[in-house]
Design a protein around this nucleic acid. Structure first.
Lengths: 230, 230
DNA sequence: GCTCGGATACTCGGTTTCGAGTATCCGAGG
DNA sequence: CCTCGGATACTCGAAACCGAGTATCCGAGC
């Protein structure tokens, strides 16, 4: 079941989804996705689109239906989905919905290296982020209001609801973290501050890690390099 | 300010972070990151690591410090961070923390194509996901308990807290959505169900979209292809 | 009837990513 | 003393990604 998909770019799933509705040519797929706002949720760019289409053909998930020429425009190849493609679409989509995967988000990367900057600066940066998150949330709400007004069923903009929920959680987390750094309620904040003070005074990092207890006190014992015996 | 980073892989940031502590050779960087559990938050694989290091050298952010040979092991090149590298590290990290970026998560992709599967199946898949999310959350909690026990400051595992917060929000969203699909409280659910019933009866999708109001009733008018005048 | 801008429809090749594969070393166990 | 497995330390070529660039078409306005 955990068969690695032969075509792994999520854009391929979107292509299959479009062709499940009706045959299209690649450029039409791209405009369709854009007009539905799906390029907000699935990365779409021309280079990938055409190579993904080619790859889908190679694996028998779609096939060229006809090459038409309208006026003296360049030829367009219209593709249709195959039986195998329909199966792949349904299976893949089911997997995306049912199985969480490790997504590497940029904030998670940032947080995991956070101690590299001094605490006060991190708190400031996080508060800065919170402002931007609120703006983004406002934009999503505005978009939903527009959708509601033209009577678009919620079903078709559910990704937006999801993003809103996740960004709200991020906002809460970020604000709480900033506050806990400012008030030194976050475990380790004092060590963290002390280390950056020492660095600012010119003590090289290597020297601190070589003798953390000496520089930072007993509570830094846990930072000592994994000594023999463990 | 929005200068595109010359080396864009987040792994490069982690490399800079390691070398900011002390000079290391690439393999040591990888083991250091792994032992700190950072490979959970930053994608790490050998291929990328070595090309990233090379790229950092090319851009003057790190430099080879020495090539040492221990015993008859293959040579290892030890790298150290440069002035420019330190600046890049701090600037990049600040940007990651302060500026939200569009991350394309797999669930968002799935949700945006959700109507491609019938409602009852989607509800089932989402409930399935909820079970797996709970397991994942349990694992994170267990990891945190272990960290707390050995006295590791919260600061050093903050990414785990973040992941916990986000996954909790995802769980809430997913459970709520599944329930709203089951109870048809999600706007558009009836149309959605009807369309999949028709398809199961063999009506091709194209025919439905060509005459949505005929097949689905007045509330489907909004699905009609963008007719002239708009 | 000509021009200009925006939409249409892709192409191309440099960069990045990837991860299985290779080769060596060391220590434990027989 | 020999061997075998796991850790060490990377290599390499195939695949994927990307987005600026190209070329054409059409309609509005002068």
């Amino acid at each position: 079941m955990a068969t690695r998909r032969r075509v792994s770019n999520p854009l391929a799933l979107a292509v299959l989804g479009c062709l499940a509705e009706r045959p299209m040519h690649p450029y039409e797929i791209s405009t369709t996705l854009r007009s539905r706002g799906k390029e907000q949720s699935i990365k779409l760019n021309y280079g990938s689109l055409y190579s993904v289409v080619e790859s889908l053909v190679k694996h028998g998930l779609i096939r060229a239906q006809a090459t038409v020429r309208e006026g003296r425009r360049p030829e367009r190849t219209v593709y249709e989905i195959t039986e195998a493609g329909t199966a792949e679409f349904e299976e893949w989509l089911a997997e995306l919905l049912s199985t969480p995967v490790r997504d590497f988000t940029s904030l998670e990367a940032g947080l995991s290296l956070m101690p590299g900057l001094p605490p006060d600066e991190v708190a400031r940066l996080l508060e800065d982020r919170a402002v931007k998150l609120r703006i983004e949330l406002g934009a999503i709400e505005a978009g939903e209001a527009v959708s509601a007004e033209i009577g678009l069923p919620e079903l078709l903009t559910i990704e937006g609801r999801y993003r809103h929920a996740i960004l709200t959680a991020e906002l809460d987390f970020v604000l709480d973290l900033a506050k806990r750094i400012r008030t030194a309620k976050l475990g380790g904040t004092k060590l963290w501050r002390r280390i950056h003070e020492l660095r600012a005074e010119g003590v090289p990092f290597e020297e601190i890690t070589a003798d953390p207890v000496g520089y930072l006190g007993e509570e830094a014992r846990v930072l000592a390099p994994p000594s023999a015996g463990q």
